[in-house]
Design a protein around this nucleic acid. Structure first.
Length: 592
DNA sequence: GCCGTTTTCGGCCCGACTGTTTTCAGTCG
């Protein structure tokens, strides 16, 4: 939301900017809100879409749009941003407000935007509810529904009224996204259940799940089967189904007990590729591909690629892409932010795979807040086929985790040396996850840090420093010649904590100058660096470490999540530190 | 509101399901 800006009355530390920083989310939320309200006002749908596209573009930027404005960058170079929207972004950054939005809010109350977020209510019905019943908020709507005043409206009925009421009661309608890693087991069970139905041929999860997004809003499943297979009946009869939202011949939607929504689509085998393409998305990617198809007088839908009535392709995704003169584009890249152009030019990246990973550069033991011994962690890593595992326990500042002081760290170094003499096929690297203190100094003395194979530096305190200070803090830490890798560089916890205000691009430049690296932390709720940052690092030629930050032997499996995010960020094997043998890695870690 | 090796104006992706309807609008993805 806006409005955080501009209160010069409030006490402000000397030297601080009087305006609160405007975040990308503020800009994007303003545009989304404006789109909602304009839609209720029955504006040109393409104008509405332009605002939504712009919101998406701004939300996906690797750095603050406010910085781009400050640097005088030409915002209309961004896709979907023209002169008008560039001006509006500048207005928001400069003033903290969007005058058009303020104006429209006078006409259409903000509460209506929350009404259209409810399932089953869209802009048309919201406008109608307001016109006929003076409903301007969720509260008004709840009252009217409870009083039974909704079902008599034209186009409404008892079912719609009930649906609205139950949605309000269960507080649905707010955006709810699940960590992908959390839903994997739900999806696997469901896939297994569907595959067991006689007559079913293929069952696959599409959507953002297949694109390997860190979070998913719902699950899209695609099924091919023999004619007459009762897939739909069996699907809605699945044990874990809480509610059947809709059920038709070829499509059904259910809500599981976990509140996860699952859409199932049944298509014929000949349309499998087209349907898979269609339901994998992203929506923006699909629209772009369809537009290309349109130029060739082709129509792409979930049943195939057609010229007039004639189906040209559809059985495989490769076929579908081929018809529009494109090579296969990996699902992780399908976000309509450059992959189509790259594909057309034959410049798609050769993406990293899990098999390329040869080690893990961030793990804890029970010496601090981990749960397993050095030996147990080593065995687990060996079992995964790794060549090395860096032990990077916390440093003393992190008292809650029983962080290591110099004495204990030296003891651990000795233990690792001893253990390495015994171990075959796996090498433990001597490391630390050392705290970056508020002034940018490191939490342990230089001489002990210099004895280590790898030093990961992380922030675990003072998350709320202003951006400039936080950025300087990190860069100062990198000045220390022992510093190798910046751990979880933005500190975000998905759905729980926003990133701290660091200028990631600036930090990347500083890392390049100093021979340091950034981590992509593979914990499912961290995943920072995130994809746009990975792309930025890659463009700059800055290598990244993909590390699990494992606290248990099981956590070592998080590597897959990190690889997913890296793939989404166009990362190739050579861009990653831990695709290298220890011999090669050692050279990279050695700073001059 | 954006965008252009057809275009600076006139396009802008496409189909399924539901509820409320007698043929379809609204919503959703």
């Amino acid at each position: 939301m806006l409005g955080a800006a501009n209160s010069s009355e409030e006490s402000t530390a000397p030297g601080c900017n009087l305006l609160m920083p405007v975040h990308n989310k503020d800009v994007a939320d303003s545009f989304d809100m404006l789109a909602d309200l304009l839609e209720i006002r029955d504006a040109n749908p393409f104008r509405v879409r332009a605002y939504r596209n712009a919101a998406r573009t701004v939300r996906g930027l690797p750095g603050p749009v406010a910085q781009m404005v400050a640097d005088g960058e030409n915002l209309s170079d961004l896709s979907g941003i023209g002169a008008d929207l560039a001006g509006k972004i500048e207005e928001i950054v400069d003033s903290g407000k969007l005058s058009l939005l303020e104006k429209v809010k006078k006409d259409i109350p903000e509460g209506l935007a929350r009404i259209i977020a409810l399932p089953g209510v869209g802009p048309k019905r919201a406008a109608q509810l307001r016109k006929e019943l003076d409903i301007e908020s969720i509260g008004d709507l709840a009252e009217a529904a409870e009083a039974g005043r909704i079902h008599d409206l034209e186009g409404f009925g008892h079912k719609t009224e009930e649906r609205i009421l139950s949605a309000i009661r269960e507080d649905r309608g707010k955006e709810q996204r699940f960590l992908r890693a959390e839903v994997v087991e739900f999806v696997d069970s469901l896939l297994e259940y569907l595959r067991a139905i006689p007559g079913v041929k293929k069952v696959v999860a599409a959507g953002s799940y297949r694109r390997r997004r860190s979070t998913v809003g719902d699950i899209d499943l695609l099924v091919t089967c023999k004619r007459g297979t009762p897939v739909m009946d069996r699907f809605v009869a699945y044990d874990d189904v809480e509610e059947v939202v809709s059920k038709g011949e070829t499509m059904a939607t259910v809500r599981l007990r976990s509140d996860l929504q699952v859409d199932l689509r049944v298509v014929q085998q000949v349309a499998y590729g087209a349907a898979l393409f269609y339901f994998t998305g992203s929506k923006a990617h699909n629209i772009s591909v369809r537009r290309m198809a349109g130029k060739k007088n082709l129509k792409v839908n979930e049943y195939g690629v057609f010229r007039a009535e004639k189906r040209l392709a559809g059985a495989t995704e490769e076929e579908v892409y081929r018809e529009v003169d494109l090579p296969f584009i990996p699902p992780e890249l399908r976000e309509d932010d450059g992959e189509i152009e790259a594909a057309r030019k034959g410049r798609l990246p050769g993406l990293l795979t899990h098999d390329d990973i040869r080690g893990n550069l961030h793990a804890h033991t029970k010496a601090t807040d981990g749960k397993y011994s050095l030996r147990e962690m080593a065995e687990a890593a060996r079992h995964l086929g790794y060549e090395y595992l860096a032990i990077t326990d916390h440093s003393q500042q992190v008292r809650m985790a029983n962080g290591l002081d110099e004495k204990r760290l030296r003891r651990q170094i000795t233990s690792i040396d001893k253990l390495n003499d015994e171990l075959d096929d796996i090498r433990l690297l001597k490391g630390i996850e050392v705290d970056i203190l508020e002034d940018g100094s490191l939490d342990l003395d230089d001489d002990v840090l210099a004895e280590l194979d790898v030093v990961v530096g992380s922030i675990h305190s003072k998350f709320d420093l202003p951006g400039k200070k936080q950025t300087e803090r990190v860069i100062r830490a990198m000045d220390n010649p022992s510093f190798n890798i910046l751990g979880h560089p933005t500190g975000r916890l998905i759905n729980r904590r926003p990133p701290y205000e660091v200028d990631v691009e600036h930090i990347m430049d500083a890392a390049l100058e100093r021979g340091c690296f950034l981590e992509l932390n593979a914990q499912p709720e961290r995943l920072d660096l995130k994809r746009v940052h990975c792309r930025l690092a890659r463009e700059k030629g800055l290598r990244i470490a993909i590390s699990t930050d494992a606290h248990t032997v099981g956590d070592l499996q998080f590597m897959a999540c990190g690889v997913d995010e890296a793939r989404r960020g166009w990362i190739e094997p050579d861009d990653v530190l831990n695709t290298r043998s220890w011999t090669d890695l050692k050279k990279l870690l050695k700073r001059d």
